[in-house]
Design a protein around this nucleic acid. Structure first.
Lengths: 128, 128
DNA sequence: TTATGTGTACTAAGTATGTTAATACAGTTA
DNA sequence: TAACTGTATTAACATACTTAGTACACATAA
């Protein structure tokens, strides 16, 4: 359900946050659905439970999930505010991405074409 | 000529490597053109000369630049292979970027519009 | 009740990496 | 000679991530 790139420079706990945020934003998981427990996910990913808890902690702070002692952690109702914030963050990073394309000498037409192509591919493959 | 994001998680020396690689790949700098000296760039960016040297060192190892003791560091002849590899890497990451836009519910039209807008901004702002 | 699984909290240590600081030496050029 | 260049080395510092170990409270099922 959640995969990690151990060689990545991005910290494990950050990767977990991103994965679960994406799961929430994409609608692949529904509200109140239960997430893997701190300990079980730690075993599954072969990492320390503290690292998982750090991720879950931050996710709860952001309102992405909610946790109940003794029961488990669950997906919160998707918040429009959260989604908008993520969109805004995304668009900001997109600007940087385009800047790099320019300095690599990639033509605008190529970029637009791939944009459309990849978009439609992802649209077809993804979804609820 | 080279800008750094000090808040980024990406190490400074890595950012410098990327910037200069991009400059080389884009053709904004020509072969044998002189780069800022280790010390001057350190002053300009307000960082330690060792950090610059680390970047230049790696760039030389990759064949992007060459250095001559007493004279300075210069751009190597652009390798078509390097440029193509960088473009390919970029386009691969672009696909992932678009995939994320979809799962965030950003419309294709918005993406295309920003693509064009940011592209032209970067094109105007960039240059030697 | 007991056992087991859940979240939560805390402290300490280990590890890796990036960065700075301070020197020193050698080549180039005006 | 003086003022630039690149290169090299060692030590210390700073930060962040991760692990280890322990403890406690709550929930649920046997």
């Amino acid at each position: 359900m959640i995969t990690i790139d151990y060689r990545s420079r991005e910290p494990i706990y950050q990767q977990i946050i991103s994965r679960i945020e994406d799961l929430a934003a994409s609608g692949l998981m529904s509200a109140d659905e239960q997430l893997p427990s701190v300990r079980s996910l730690a075993v599954e990913l072969s990492i320390n439970p503290n690292t998982i808890q750090r991720a879950y902690n931050e996710l709860e702070r952001r309102g992405i999930i909610y946790s109940v002692a003794g029961k488990g952690s669950f997906l919160a109702k998707p918040s429009e505010a959260v989604r908008e914030q993520k969109q805004a963050d995304y668009l900001e990073s997109f600007r940087e991405q385009i800047r790099r394309a320019v300095s690599l000498g990639i033509k605008l037409e190529v970029l637009l074409g791939l944009c459309e192509k990849y978009y439609k591919q992802a649209e077809g493959g993804a979804s609820k």
